[in-house]
Simulated scan of single mutants.
Amino acid sequence: MDRQQPKAGDTVYVIYRNPHTANVAVIKEAEVVQHPEDENDVALFLYETYHELLPDDAVFSSYEEAEQLYNELFNHNQYEG
């Protein structure tokens, strides 16, 4: 999703890394909201907390899009057998 696309009120999906356990990441639904400190910007509301929406954040409009990248990033080291 292009950084300019998310608008307040949108529901998006993000790959969120647990800040306390570096090897744990999950796909989470988040809401795009008006930034609490900048009326000209938006933020992500996730885990009851506002998160600045940065240009390099991976923000997806569907769970399936997020899941595809998640699998590429986190399941590439798994091999069968």
Rank of each mutant, 00 (worst) to 15 (best):
M1W: 02
M1I: 07
R3N: 10
Q4F: 11
Q5I: 15
Q5Y: 06
Q5S: 11
A8S: 13
A8F: 03
G9K: 01
G9W: 06
D10Q: 02
D10R: 05
T11E: 08
T11Y: 02
V12L: 01
V12T: 01
Y13L: 08
V14C: 00
I15N: 01
I15K: 08
I15T: 04
Y16S: 07
R17A: 10
R17M: 10
N18D: 14
N18C: 14
N18R: 04
P19H: 02
H20R: 14
H20S: 13
A25F: 01
I27V: 04
K28Q: 12
K28S: 07
K28P: 00
E29D: 10
E29P: 03
A30G: 09
A30L: 07
A30I: 05
E31N: 14
V32C: 03
V33D: 03
Q34W: 08
Q34A: 11
H35D: 15
P36W: 04
P36Q: 05
D38R: 08
D38H: 06
E39W: 02
E39D: 12
D41F: 00
V42G: 02
V42D: 05
A43Q: 04
A43K: 07
A43L: 04
A43C: 13
L44V: 01
L44A: 00
F45S: 05
F45A: 10
Y47D: 13
T49P: 08
T49K: 09
T49D: 07
Y50C: 08
Y50K: 01
Y50I: 14
H51F: 06
H51P: 04
H51V: 11
H51M: 03
E52V: 15
E52H: 10
E52C: 09
E52D: 13
E52T: 15
L53Q: 02
L54Q: 07
P55G: 05
D56I: 14
D56T: 09
D57Q: 06
D57I: 00
A58T: 06
F60H: 10
F60G: 00
S61D: 03
S61W: 08
S61H: 01
S62P: 05
S62R: 11
E64K: 12
E64Q: 12
E64N: 10
E65Q: 12
E65K: 15
A66G: 12
A66S: 05
E67P: 00
Q68L: 04
L69W: 08
L69I: 08
Y70N: 04
N71W: 03
N71P: 01
N71H: 07
E72I: 05
L73K: 09
L73H: 09
L73A: 13
L73N: 03
F74W: 13
F74M: 03
F74Y: 06
N75Y: 07
N75R: 14
H76C: 11
H76E: 08
N77A: 11
N77F: 12
Q78G: 05
Q78T: 14
Q78M: 11
Y79V: 14
Y79K: 15
Y79D: 15
G81Q: 06
G81K: 13
